[in-house]
Each structure stands twice: as C-alpha cells, then as structure tokens.
Amino acid sequence: MVSSQKTGGFLAAPAVTYMVIFFVAPSLLLFSYSFWTASSFRIVPDFVLTNYLSSIQSLLFLKVTLNALLIGLVTATVSVLLSLPIAYYLTYVTRSKLIFYLILITWFSSYLVRIYAWRTLLGTNGLLNAALLQLGIISTPIEAFLFSPFAVGVTLVHIYLPFAVLMVISAMSEIKKELIEASRDLGTSPIGAFMRVVAPNAAQGLIGAFMLTFILAASDYVTPQMVGGSSGQTTGLLIADQFRKTGNWPLGAAQAFIMFALSILIYLIITALARASGLTRSRKSTTILTQDK
C-alpha cells in the first residue's frame, strides 16, 4: 500500500508542480494584488478593501456581471439539456461513433473562425435572413439577429456544447443499460426510468457538465463582444480592460475574485438544488434518515 501511494505521488508530481507554479502561485499573487492600490500606472502594496467595495457599488460592474452570469446560466442550461438526448443516444442506442466524431470535429476549426462564421450566418446579409426572405416570412432583413443576446446564446452554446456532451456521455457510460431495463421491468415508463435511475446516478456528471459550461461561457469575453455588440458586455471584458488599458491591476484582481466567488456560489446553489430535489444526497444523512425504518 505504501509503495502504491508513493507511486501515485510520483505520477502526480509533474502535474501538481506545474499547477502550483503556474496556477496556484499566480492566483495567490493576484489575490494579494486585489488589496493593493494603483496610482498613475503603478501598483502599490497596501491592504484596502476599496477595490472590492467600489466594484460592487459600480452600476456598470453590477450590470455586466449580471449579464455574464445570465449568459453563463443560459448557455449551461441549454447545453446540458441538449446534450442529454445526444449522450443517451450515443450511450444506449447506437454503437456508431459518427455523431461523436462530428461533435469532436468542431474543435478542429479555430474558435475565432467559428465566431466569424456565426456573424456571417446571423448578419443582415446572412444565411438566416436570406432564408427567411426567400420564404417570404419577412420582407426586410432583421438586424436584431446579430448583436443580440440571442446571437450570444446561439454562438456560446455552439462552442461549449461539445464539452457538455463529453461530460454527460462519460457520466452515462457509468450507468449500465440493465439498470434502465430493471427500472422499466419494475413499472417505470422510459421518461420515469431517466428521472429515477439515470439522472440520480449521473447527477455528479450533470452538475460537472453544467458548471464547466457555465464557467467557460460566463468568463468568455471575446464571443459575447463579437456577436453581441453592446449586449455582449461581460465582466471578463471589464477585467481585461483593467489590466490592458487602465492599468488598474488591483481593481481587475478584485473583480476577478468577485467572479470567482460568484462561480462558487452558483455551484453551491446548484448542488443544494440537486439535493433538495432528491437528485443527489449524501450517504451519511440517508443512513440517519432511514434508521427508524
């Protein structure tokens, strides 16, 4: 046992070292910056809460942060909902890997190219408007397709859906088909079998998929800006500006950590909701609850 623990530590060491040097240390550094002050493009060591307080009192910050959270939540919800039937189909119905590879192939093209593709599709001369014009549904091109929350949502779901699909597939592949058959045999409809057996057993994976797409989408500041115009302003953009343009690193750092805290808050809310709905539960509490049976 001791030797296998040693081997485990040895195998994990490179990755752990990498993460400590290039993620944990910079993060801690950034965290300490968030209490410093900035004056004329210089940052001065200090310990003030001004950066946090002024952020949460800034109407602009609150507005873009709310926007980022909404974008993240909508993208995550839509992505997870869309990935459920795909993952179910790929796990239990077909042995063909075609759809799986079609999903992966989207990663073979550049992220920016795909954003520009959506701009072309949704623009006034784009495919969507052209099709609607041809069909006679509209008489003049709709400008609102592009540079709208709709465009942001569509593009982000397109970009992040594969992540959700992969995570949901891996969660479902842990659930044997016999479990679904057993629940059918015991009187559950197909949808009931999904709700009562697949969902609870895949819950951790579903929450993981939701959180991953949420974090990626909420922190994305390139896509929303490029296809959303003014509706695509998010916290990420604001933070980037503090570092690149105004040079106020401490304020940027504080805002980054506010987003970090909000992401954790969302995670806690999601897990609490999952537990309240009976989707997940901790084993300890179950044992206590059922002891009087």
Binding site: K176, E178, L179, E181, A182, S183, R184, D185, L186, G187, T188, S189, V197, N201
Partner: peptide
C-alpha cells in the same frame, strides 16, 4: 415491459 405482469432478475442483478 412496465405494463407486463412479470418481473425479472438480471444476470448481474442490476440493483440501483
């Protein structure tokens, strides 16, 4: 299956 008056014991039990 859910409407049939039969129940099945699966080879690898398929317990939840």
């Amino acid at each position: 299956p859910e409407k049939r008056p039969v129940n099945m014991v699966f080879q690898r039990y398929a317990l939840f």
